Amino acid sequence: MTDAAFDFDRIIDRSSLPSEKWGRYAGRDVLPLWVADMDFAAPPAVIEALQRRIDHGVFGYTDAWPSLCEAVIDGLQRDHGWAIEADWLVWLPGVVAGFNLACAIAGEAGDGVLTATPVYPPFLTAPANTGRVLQRVELVLRDGRWQWDWGALEAACTPATRLLLLCSPHNPVGRVFDETELRRLADFADRHDLIVCSDEIHCGLVLDEGRPHRPLAALDEAAGRRTITLMAPSKTWNIPALYCAFAVIPDAALRRRYRHAMRGIVPHVNVLGMVAAEAAYRDGDPWRQALLAYLRANRARVVEAVAAMPGLSMTVPEATYLAWIDCRALMAARGVADPVAFFEAAGVGLSEGAAFGAPGFVRLNFGCPRATLADALGRMARALAG
Score class of each variant (00 low, 15 high):
F177E: 00
W237P: 04
P169S: 04
E344W: 05
V140I: 15
A383C: 07
T372A: 06
G210R: 10
R296M: 08
E85R: 13
V275H: 11
R52C: 03
A308F: 10
S234W: 01
F40W: 15
A329N: 10
D39Q: 13
A280P: 03
L364C: 06
R78L: 08
L134C: 09
A104C: 02
A337W: 07
I105G: 01
A102W: 08
A307I: 03
L295H: 13
R184P: 02
A385C: 07
R256E: 14
Y258W: 15
V72G: 01
R296S: 05
A247H: 13
E138V: 10
G110P: 02
G311W: 14
A116I: 14
F361Q: 06
A280E: 02
G81C: 06
S234M: 13
V206A: 02
R28F: 12
F6L: 04
I12Y: 09
A297T: 12
P93S: 01
V266A: 04
P215Q: 12
A186K: 02
M38E: 10
A5Y: 08
D9R: 10
D190F: 03
L350F: 13
I12S: 04
A222P: 02
E209M: 08
A41T: 08
P339Q: 07
L182A: 01
I105M: 06
G110L: 05
G347V: 11
N298E: 09
A261V: 12
L165T: 03
L216S: 07
F366T: 03
A308K: 14
A333E: 15
D74K: 09
E304R: 14
G144W: 06
N298S: 12
G81L: 07
N298P: 02
P267H: 13
M380R: 10
V133A: 07
A83K: 13
V348H: 12
V362R: 10
R53V: 03
A253R: 15
R24M: 08
W91L: 05
R53P: 02
R255P: 06
T115F: 09
F8M: 04
H80F: 15
D338R: 03
A252C: 11
L182Q: 01
